[in-house]
């Protein structure tokens, strides 16, 4: 058996990104590299190597300026699986409520020895802003309605596991495209790997000129279902909507909800994804969510592997850039 130590201590890797801010900024090769790395971590875990020493001595900061449960837990666990120490920060009870700026907060945490920042923020571009002003690598865990690259990667990884090479495959993204960072990261990830993407939802939730991203726009889920290999059902972002984008939840579920009747129109081996947290009975009925086409729980476990891969690649790149100085001589007093 090949030791994972041998595997990971081979020479330089073709990963040159200092930050992971979005899938827009990655090539198809870089996306594939992360996915392969994640698959490797997943394989190792299945073989019993659930704890690796790759980030030993590193402190990963989880800076969640916007509430999150699953993504933060997933990142925290991913860091621990790599033997990193973690520091959690969330705005409630922090100095942000005392008026400290976002940047000062991050710089203070960096000064405490945190060397890799996982950041979620409600403002698009906030992580880019931080990355330009700090030394640590910044990993975007969701910036407003812009991107959520690790979610995009885990969705793509899950589809790749079920469908193999995604070139020529067709994927539908259904629901609130306008307010969804997951949709944007999915579009970049999928199109860069050669898949065809259809975005489907009410006209009010499809942002203008999105077809320029190379996607097809549809307002009829019934038309789309028979044509696709995978369906990713995006959550309705009640918290981001400032107006009436659709008349009622019932009407949304009627027109765009995934239920048993609609599923009958789908291909035999269609894959149903939902990034969660899901609104049962709105985007997806319990029957479908818990049925044989659903890969919702695979997504969660792949999320862990993808986040381990992202943390590991960013950490290795940082070490390459720092080209670590020799161990300091510590004199005993």
């Amino acid at each position: 058996m090949v030791s994972f130590r041998d595997y990971f201590q081979e020479g330089p890797i073709p990963w040159t990104q200092s930050n992971l801010l979005g899938l827009q900024y990655l090539s198809g090769e870089e996306i594939t590299l992360i996915l392969d790395q994640a698959a490797e971590f997943k394989r190792l875990a299945a073989e019993g190597h659930s704890k690796l020493g790759l980030l030993k001595g590193t402190v990963v900061g989880n800076l969640f300026f916007e509430p999150s449960t699953r993504t933060r837990t997933s990142f925290g666990l991913a860091a621990k699986r790599l033997s990193a120490d973690t520091v959690d920060f969330s705005p409630s009870g922090s100095s942000l409520s005392k008026g400290e700026s976002f940047l000062d907060t991050a710089r203070n945490i960096e000064a405490m020895g945190v060397s890799l920042m996982v950041v979620r923020h409600k403002t698009p571009g906030a992580q880019l802003f931080l990355s330009q002003r700090m030394n640590s690598p910044v990993l975007n865990a969701g910036d407003g309605t812009h991107e959520h690259p690790t979610q995009g990667l885990l969705d793509v990884m899950t589809m790749r596991e079920r469908c193999g090479d995604l070139t020529g495959k067709t994927v539908a993204l259904v629901g609130d495209i306008r307010h969804s960072r997951v949709a944007r990261s999915n579009i970049w990830g999928l199109t860069k790997l050669g898949a065809k993407v259809i975005v489907c939802g009410p006209a009010t939730l499809i942002p203008p000129q999105i077809e320029k991203l190379g996607v097809e726009v549809s307002h009829s889920l019934d038309d789309v279902i028979p044509r696709v290999d995978c369906i990713n059902l995006l959550r309705i972002q009640f918290e981001r909507q400032r107006g009436a984008f659709f008349p009622s939840i019932q009407e949304y579920a009627h027109l765009f909800g995934m239920n048993a009747t609609r599923l009958k129109r789908a291909r035999e081996n269609v894959v149903i994804l939902a990034p969660g947290p899901i609104n049962r009975g709105v985007e997806i009925t319990p029957h479908v969510a818990d049925g044989k086409h659903s890969v919702i729980l695979d997504q969660v476990s792949n999320g862990l592997a993808v986040r381990m891969a992202a943390l590991y690649l960013l950490h290795r790149r940082q070490q390459e850039l720092l080209s670590f100085p020799p161990e300091p001589q510590v004199s005993l007093i």
């Binding site: 827009q24 698009p124 571009g125 910036d143 407003g144 309605t145 812009h146 991107e147 960072r181 944007r184 942002p207 203008p208 000129q209 999105i210 320029k212 991203l213 400032r242």
Partner: peptide
């Protein structure tokens, strides 16, 4: 333009910024 930050068009869609 409530909550808006930039011109509405392809780039507001791309960047996820309120239009």
């Amino acid at each position: 333009i409530a909550d808006g930050l930039m011109h509405e068009g392809f780039y507001s869609t791309l960047l996820g910024l309120p239009p």
